[in-house]
């Protein structure tokens, strides 16, 4: 475990906590894409199939449980909670899951490290995580009025990926046998998707203005 990896995990954890806190205390999920949240639940489910078979560390197992638990509770809040679900704007959040899920599945079946169920699912989760933010970014662009917590949530998610890249660079030099190009490409694509958002996030921060994405 290096400092970049730990910082990446922590920003990832904070992003989820910020979102849960927003939903739980304000009882609102305005501006949050259910599609993205459902895709994350799918990402964690398919990635952590090894949670009960391969023990890596207590830290690893606990974090996996947190990410699984939080992603499913966020989906539950938006779909089922009697107050929260009223703030969900279904008409704006129209991105189709299968546009992302099917290509990622096909890609994972053909391009993977080893053709086993667990390995294909793990690869699928990497591809899907890379693009799972798209419905959320589309929603941000549509609603334009982005509240602080939603902006911070997306910023923390992007920061997590950027820190993971630094972690891989570090690991590349310290443990060369670990490097795998599938992880790199998926991770870089995922981080690039945030580039536009980051640009406007820093602009609004610098000018002390409310975050707004151009139409």
């Amino acid at each position: 475990m290096n400092i970049f990896r730990l910082a990446g995990d922590m920003t990832h954890l904070f992003s989820v906590l910020v979102l849960l806190l927003k939903i739980h205390t304000i009882k609102s999920c305005a501006g949050i894409s259910l599609k993205t949240q459902e895709l994350y639940a799918l990402v964690f489910t398919t990635r952590y199939l090894d949670i009960f078979t391969d023990f890596i560390s207590l830290y690893n197992t606990v974090m996996k449980l947190i990410f699984l638990g939080s992603s499913f509770s966020i989906v539950w809040y938006i779909r089922r909670h009697k107050i929260v679900r009223r703030s969900y704007d279904k008409d704006q959040d129209t991105f189709r899951h299968y546009f992302l899920v099917i290509p990622c599945l096909v890609l994972a079946v053909f391009i993977n490290h080893k053709f086993t169920f667990k390995e294909v699912m793990w690869t699928f989760s990497l591809y899907l995580e890379a693009v799972a933010i798209l419905p959320q970014l589309v929603l941000l662009q549509r609603t334009r009025n982005i509240d602080n917590l939603t902006g911070q949530y997306v910023f923390l998610l992007g920061a997590y990926r950027a820190l993971y890249i630094l972690n891989w660079i570090y690991r590349h030099f310290t443990e060369p046998h670990y490097v795998h190009w599938i992880t790199w490409i998926a991770g870089v694509v995922q981080t690039l998707l945030y580039a536009d958002f980051f640009y406007y996030y820093f602009q609004s921060w610098k000018n002390n203005e409310k975050l707004q994405l151009p139409a």
Binding site: D9, D54, S57, N60, N167, H180
Partner: peptide, 10 residues
């Protein structure tokens, strides 16, 4: 270890 990178990551 012949594990691909990332299996110990989250």
């Amino acid at each position: 270890k012949d594990q691909p990178q990332g299996h110990d990551e989250l």
